[in-house]
């Protein structure tokens, strides 16, 4: 059952690598925020799964609002001359680690439960 998401990841990676589109240098930081936001959403979704409170609407809307807010912040930062997008990068980075830690905890407790059941 984990095959489908993996296939999705590979398909996305394939399309991303074949697409040849010149990104203007000013938009590169927006792209980096999008990368972090999507990674954060994937890990957040997996974590929610393991904690049994998964909701697809929350996941997708979370991704888009987070990405949008981060982009807005980056744009505002550009206007103001402050690297505000770093705040988004920081938040996403912290959340990545937190989600990863939660996933690890969830997986470990699952593993222990299985052993006890046997």
């Amino acid at each position: 059952m984990w095959i489908l998401p993996l296939l999705g990841l590979l398909a996305g990676a394939f399309i991303g690598s074949t697409l040849t589109y010149e990104v203007p240098p000013t938009y590169i930081k927006y792209m980096s925020i999008a990368v972090l936001a999507s990674l954060d959403s994937v890990l957040g979704g997996v974590r929610a799964l393991l904690e049994n409170d998964f909701d697809s609407t929350v996941l997708l809307s979370g991704f888009f609002t987070n990405a949008l807010l981060a982009a807005l912040l980056a744009y505002l930062g550009d206007r103001l001359g402050v690297d505000l997008y770093l705040a988004a990068v920081f938040v996403f980075g912290v959340r990545l680690f937190q989600n990863l830690a939660n996933i690890r905890h969830g997986l470990l407790s699952q593993l222990r439960n299985n052993k006890q059941e046997k």
Partner: peptide, 13 residues
């Protein structure tokens, strides 16, 4: 999750 993985893979590469 598949959709998210797809988006993440795309942006990453």
């Amino acid at each position: 999750i598949t959709i998210m993985c797809f988006i993440a893979g795309f942006f990453l590469t």
